[in-house]
Design a binder for these strands. Structure first.
Lengths: 329, 329
DNA sequence: GTGAAAGCGCTAACAA
DNA sequence: TTGTTAGCGCTTTCAC
């Protein structure tokens, strides 16, 4: 039961109310060090009664720890910060930080100036960093001082553990589905070239078509619907007999469908279309989009947790991506 | 030019390097108080050279300010925190906080226990609160101590400034469009009853149909696609001659379209469908969704800025919502 | 098991 | 204009 107070209670208040010293109160509250069961009870009761909440700033100051988790997104322009995908990562990270009294800040890492990362690393307010859309040069710019308190959603390095969806597995699952349903001339609209983790999908595609003896039909994409629209046209002009298009992201796939429809191509009748990510609205599109799942929330949660808990983690954790078969393919 | 350092520089380091006292350095860095141009230069140079970044925790501690901005979302279950809309708000707030060295944390306010807000208010780490999906009882639970550092996205109160989209205006714009294109039996799928800001849309609907002498056809919704599907069925069964359905959210509208299609109803041929929010994928659906814009990012940015800047703001700021006419209506 | 005391990095009186 | 001083609230040796 918490009682209203003009001024939020401090540890000193709690200690006094419990009749112990500040140190003892601190040990009990922080759960560190020993204390007699009696003292423990009295402090807990007092804290409860006063509605005591530890001051995160003071705690961080004395511990030399930071007080916020930085989400740093690599991109060509700061517009990447408006991306719904980034928003989901930030929200998940914020949820993880909350019980620790840790907030999340959002930063843009210019693709051309990855050293901007150093500034973050030198900010003592930053207790850890979650990298998004990581590139090789960003990874190279990670200072040693960050070791153990940085994680990457995307590719990783020896010092930066990676958390990501298993693009390869998801891609393979989708392509197998396409193949199993009779498609033999499958084109792919990829992610941006500079985004290394997108390369895993492309590799899976190449391997699959090679093994099946199918033609390679690659078109560069950038995850946007607009690019999907254009890519659909491009594909049908270069390879008119294409019977399936796999896009590395759902928004792009939806754009592909729109582009195809505009040309009078039937989906999935003439051309099957599949995406990747299973965004909330994939099932609401017409036709409902066949895609592969992408547990963004779980991935971001794991990454944030890893940096906040300073727990040793494997160099790379891949979250499974499963086929979500609907109507478009 | 910043130089790598084993240990991030402190203000003390900067002062020493600049040959001034810590206070002078503080004044220069914080931009508060006076300092000679000479001292100013020397400190700035030293700070730059050492790659100095102020310690947010120390600063917050001495100032008695917090270090994070809490985004508190009211909802029946903690699942509201997974909502893409909430994610956009959090991301926008995080962006606003970043230059201040302020992080964002995300909290669920149980609809049945709005007093959970007190805990946040007593947390000295919290410098301000942005309320989302505000209800009357949440507003009542806002302690006086929060005055000036709380804002609401949704409804407000005498002490809590509100920032929201002009639902009324957007709704009216959509309904006028429906009317102008010949629709006369317009049903509406509303938002959840407890969400007061959703009431503005309903009021606009009631007024519009009354003035035009049209029948009132209201069905309760909850912003989800699933509910939209069911609502479509419900509407067509209760009022088979309905020729337009307006949903208070785009996901619901998409669900309505799906439900209608399942029954063989043509959109927009038989029934026009319009939504509200203009989510990124509204233009990619089939048919492309007619809706009203909802600048979530700008609204959240304004709300976050208001609490961080402690700037006096009007009791309510409404952001215009414009008709986005596409194919579904 | 407990308390006294020092100090994390910074700002804000106050005095010079 | 500048430096000195006293904390902000907390954790953490180190004695007892």
């Amino acid at each position: 039961m918490t009682t209203a107070a003009a001024r939020p209670a401090t540890l000193e208040d709690v200690a006094r109310a419990a009749g112990v010293s500040r140190s003892t109160a601190s040990r009990v509250i922080a759960g560190t060090g020993a204390a007699s069961p009696e003292a423990r009870d009295r402090v807990a009761a007092a804290a409860d009664r006063l509605g005591y909440v530890p001051n995160a700033a003071a705690r961080a100051l004395v511990r030399g720890a930071g007080v916020r988790l930085a989400v740093a997104v690599t991109g060509t322009t700061s517009a990447v910060l408006e991306d719904p995908y980034v928003a989901r990562v930030v929200a998940a990270a914020a949820q993880v930080g909350t019980p620790h009294g840790i907030g999340v800040s959002l930063h843009w890492l210019p693709r051309s100036a990855p050293q901007a990362l150093r500034e973050l690393a030198y900010d003592r307010g930053v207790c850890g960093i979650v990298l998004v859309n990581t590139t090789g040069s960003v990874l190279d710019a990670v200072p040693r001082s960050l070791r153990g308190r940085v994680a990457s959603i995307g590719i990783g390095s020896r010092t930066v553990p990676a958390f990501d969806v298993d693009n390869g597995g998801g891609t393979t699952a989708v392509l197998h589905h396409l193949y199993a349903t009779g498609r033999r001339r499958i084109a792919m609209v990829t992610g941006p070239r500079w985004l290394m983790c997108a390369g895993r999908s492309v590799r899976a595609y190449r391997q699959m078509v090679r093994e099946a003896g199918l033609p390679v039909r690659l078109v560069r994409g950038d995850f946007t619907p607009a690019r999907g629209r254009a890519a659909a046209v491009e594909v049908m002009e270069r390879w008119p007999d294409t019977d399936a298009i796999f896009a590395a992201s759902d928004p792009t796939a939806l754009g592909v469908i729109a582009g195809l429809r505009r040309r009078g191509v039937l989906v999935p009748g003439d051309v099957a279309v599949a995406g990747f990510d299973d965004i909330p609205l994939a099932e609401l599109s017409t036709p409902a989009l066949t895609t592969a799942s992408h547990p963004v929330g779980r991935i971001a949660t794991a990454a944030a947790q890893a940096v906040l808990d300073r727990r040793p983690v494997p160099p790379a954790t891949f979250f499974p991506s499963a086929l979500v078969a609907r109507d478009s393919a």
